[in-house]
Amino acid sequence: MLRTHGRFPYRPWRGRPQGSWPGGAKLAVYLGVNLEHFSFGEGLGAELAPGGPQPDVLNHAWRDYGNREGAWRLLDLLDELSLPCTVLLNTAMYHHAPELVAAHRARGDEMAGHGRTNSKRQSTLPEAEEAALIRACTEEMVRQEGAAPRGWLSPWIAESRATPDLLQEAGYRYSLNWCHDDQPVWKRTRAGRILSVPYPQEANDIPAIIARKDGARHFAELVSQDFRERLRQVADGIPQVMGIALHPYIIGQPYRLRALRRVLAEIASRRDEVWITTAGGIHDHVTTHWPEDAIP
């Protein structure tokens, strides 16, 4: 037998119970806006160009453009289209760019945990240190937001074998780390369960633009075609989740934002057919309105 994670069983798409989102919608759409900070002269980070010796000024400055410029322009676009979002927040942002976090807070956007910094992976830490990191990030968000975050996305989608257990034990209700399904899925942990809310690795500007080198129009067309095909698919009655993952230092570049505006306006124009929400809103609706057998 092959080794397995043991967190959830296989369940085929066909034959799943038919359900719906609020208003009878079959498709839920949420935006995950990553607000990240990176250590200067060390650690991990996406690269505009192959990095040189540290300090790698080119790539560090390019990433910080997102916090200084790109994220603010993305905020304007979200306001223009009246779109909510889930902020995936490095807690280092409270000290690096507090005004930016405050602007999202003023909009009423959901704040979800995203580690302290995207310069490091949590999966390489001993279990006690990983637990301490999750606890410190949670406590900082409670101090700043007045409430504990419900969701968590690990920096670099990096999990140790204990991460789901540690998140559930720290009070998290959902995780965004797995991209294995188009519906929320219950994951077993050693002390209960935690909901896995789908987080995209296709409609996501890092793998599309940085890894696959897609252009701005290509990425926008990817998101548009994903949205249109999902609308067609949900006619079978099985509800889906569509996430769109955005990083302001990538998508906040003016020419990319211009292409994104078109597809987000298309999605916003269909809000009578789809449920535009947050990752936390998906968790809340599933756990309070869906029967137990409707969640894989």
Rank of each mutant, 00 (worst) to 15 (best):
R270D: 07
H285K: 09
R258E: 15
E273M: 02
I282C: 10
T287S: 11
W290S: 10
H285D: 11
A259Q: 06
L264A: 07
H283A: 14
G281F: 00
V263M: 08
I267V: 14
R270P: 06
T287Y: 02
S269K: 04
V274S: 05
I282P: 07
V263F: 03
G281V: 03
S269N: 03
R271H: 11
L260W: 00
H283C: 13
A265P: 15
V286H: 02
V286N: 04
I267Y: 13
T287D: 06
R270Q: 09
R258T: 14
I282M: 04
R270A: 06
R258Q: 14
H283L: 10
L264C: 08
L260G: 04
E273N: 03
H285L: 12
W290K: 13
H289D: 11
E273G: 02
R261F: 00
A265E: 15
G280D: 04
A265K: 13
T277M: 03
E273L: 03
H289S: 13
A268K: 05
R262L: 11
R262G: 13
A259P: 05
I282R: 01
W275L: 05
I276A: 08
S269E: 04
A268D: 04
G280P: 02
I276T: 08
E273T: 04
T288Q: 05
T277L: 06
I276C: 10
E266T: 01
T288Y: 11
L257E: 13
S269V: 00
L264G: 08
L264N: 10
T278N: 07
D284F: 03
D284A: 14
I276S: 08
H283G: 14
H289R: 15
E273A: 04
S269M: 01
D272P: 07
L257A: 10
V286G: 08
A279I: 07
T278Q: 07
H283Y: 05
A268S: 08
V286L: 02
R261K: 10
H289E: 14
T278P: 03
L264W: 05
V263D: 09
W290R: 14
A259Y: 00
L264Y: 07
T287P: 01
H289T: 15
A279D: 08
E273F: 09
D284K: 04
A268F: 00
A279F: 05
V274R: 04
L264E: 09
R258D: 15
T287K: 00
L260E: 07
G281H: 01
D272K: 09
R258A: 15
